[in-house]
């Protein structure tokens, strides 16, 4: 069944989009990080113009994040104070990001920047995840499971404006989560991601937050960053395809539920190992598209 996308101005197979949304939702539910960074390149492979893919995926991320936060909220796994500081930075960052998006769109290099930053992030995250999960698999095989320190102290803990985060049992500078928020916000606007795959490791390794609070708190701030990005993209670039976003989010909110149930069937490190391979493959495909000679070095855009 084909559905005509009013903003992307092309028909797309509705069941295929629902299925992709579902699959991304399953991954979210199993691994705990948002699927935006896989979804946007997938949409681009399906022929959705990059600006529309980025903006619509930002829109879809809101739904599974709301759904996820509500469950984490019930279990008391959200550090509101930390979340609010992260999201202040995030809103600022996503506004800067949309401005950069605009400039790049006007000079005609938006597509390149989106694809290139995807390649960089996917290969970095993919490699890290690959090494980490492989190590853990080997360690578990050998029967040695050691617990690391709660968190390490480094120069980042010497920054001014220190404040106490009771829930996370931290006494750190406000600037740190604020800066992380800004960076994630910029990336969210440019790449159509919630930033979970950046913010989760940043919260664990840079802030030293307890792992139990990390996913809920990151989802909490992603809701606001993704909403801000969606509204800004819609009002400035008119690139949010609500029909595409609707199909994707419908699939993903269902998928998340399946994913969180499936996650008991498989070990976390095995799951992350498979995911890291998928991520590396997507990154490699994007990269090979950038370096191989195009079929036609000329291309056209029919203007309005």
């Amino acid at each position: 069944m084909y559905i005509y996308l009013p903003i992307a101005e092309q028909p797309i197979h509705a069941l295929v989009v629902l299925g992709i949304g579902w699959l991304i939702g399953v991954i979210m539910g199993m691994v705990g990080i948002g699927g935006g960074f896989l979804l946007t390149p997938l949409m681009i492979f399906f022929g959705i113009p990059s600006p529309v893919a980025v903006a619509s995926v930002a829109n879809q991320i809101v739904a599974p994040s709301v759904s996820g936060v509500l469950s984490h909220w019930k279990s008391g796994n959200v550090d509101i104070k930390m979340g609010i500081i992260l999201l202040l930075g995030g809103v600022l960052g996503s506004s800067i990001g949309v401005l950069i998006f605009n400039v790049l769109n006007n000079i005609g290099q938006l597509d390149l920047v989106i694809k290139f930053s995807y390649f960089l992030f996917l290969s970095a995250i993919g490699t890290l995840m690959f090494i980490e999960s492989l190590r853990l698999i080997i360690r578990v095989r050998k029967g040695k499971v050691t617990r690391g320190k709660l968190h390490q102290h480094n120069w980042l803990h010497g920054l001014p404006f220190k404040t106490r985060f009771r829930k996370s049992k931290l006494y750190i500078s406000v600037l740190l989560p604020l800066l992380i928020g800004v960076i994630v916000g910029i990336l969210a606007a440019l790449m159509g991601i919630g930033g979970g795959f950046i913010i989760v490791p940043a919260m664990i390794y840079l802030l030293g937050m307890p792992t139990s609070l990390v996913v809920g708190t990151s989802l909490f701030q992603i809701i606001f960053v993704a909403s801000n990005t969606t509204i800004l993209q819609a009002s400035q670039n008119q690139t949010v395809d609500i029909v595409l976003a609707f199909l994707l989010l419908l699939g993903s909110v269902i998928g998340v539920q399946f994913g969180s149930r499936f996650s008991n069937l498989m070990k976390g490190e095995h799951l992350r190992f498979f995911l890291s391979i998928i991520i590396l493959l997507v990154g490699f495909k994007l990269f090979s598209d950038l370096i191989t000679i195009p079929k036609d070095i000329f291309s056209i855009i029919v203007l309005k």
Binding site: L70, A234, L249
Partner: peptide
């Protein structure tokens, strides 16, 4: 339009939960 898009997403997320 952007606000509607967000409200719709929030509603579906809440509803699914």
């Amino acid at each position: 339009y952007g606000i509607i898009a967000v409200v719709l997403a929030v509603f579906i997320g809440w509803f699914a939960n």
